[in-house]
């Protein structure tokens, strides 16, 4: 079995036996290519009562290479309005790009994104949203984001 499959199998086992942290649930993990999880910010925040869905796409190099993570944008789920989340669901977060580490996991990414939403003070789209979304590649990993803002 490939390393990526073994590793994902372990993560799945842990999710099913030990459960997921508060506000995070596993929606669909039928294979080891694409997983869906739901994310919800608990407690006081600008996103109270909103439920989002995250799509994870893994390549055979996982966990050495990062998963492609984005918010789902369909009839059921819409991406949150956040300065680092584009309206097509792409997320500009350094841990999904240059700051990815192979010891991180699906759940660790979810927790980080949850805290990114929880600490949001200004519910706006990124300033260049329209321009980016018009040209965005399907896979957010092909976008070279520039991380200049470590405040939010």
């Amino acid at each position: 079995m490939a390393v990526s499959t073994r590793r994902l199998q372990k993560e799945l086992t842990e999710i099913t036996t030990a459960g997921t942290p508060c506000g995070i649930t596993l929606l669909k993990a039928d294979d080891f290519q694409t997983w869906f999880l739901t994310l919800e910010v608990l407690g006081e925040s600008l996103y109270q009562g909103e439920v989002f869905a995250l799509m994870f796409r893994f390549d055979s190099q996982y966990p050495i290479s990062s998963p492609a993570v984005q918010f789902v944008n369909d009839e059921t789920y819409q991406p949150p309005i956040h300065p680092h989340v584009y309206s097509n669901g792409h997320i500009c977060a350094s841990i999904l790009g240059s700051e990815w580490s192979p010891v991180l996991s699906v759940i660790a990414v979810c927790i980080t994104l949850q805290s990114m939403l929880a600490s949001c003070k200004d519910k706006t789209r990124p300033p260049d949203n329209d321009r980016y979304v018009a040209h965005a590649p399907d896979n957010p990993k092909k976008t070279r984001f520039v991380y200049h803002d470590d405040e939010v």
Binding site: P83, C92, S94, M116, T143, R144, F145, D149
Partner: peptide, 9 residues
């Protein structure tokens, strides 16, 4: 495509 927005490290 390069995009000038970022997030928490």
């Amino acid at each position: 495509i390069q995009v000038p927005i970022s997030s928490s490290p």
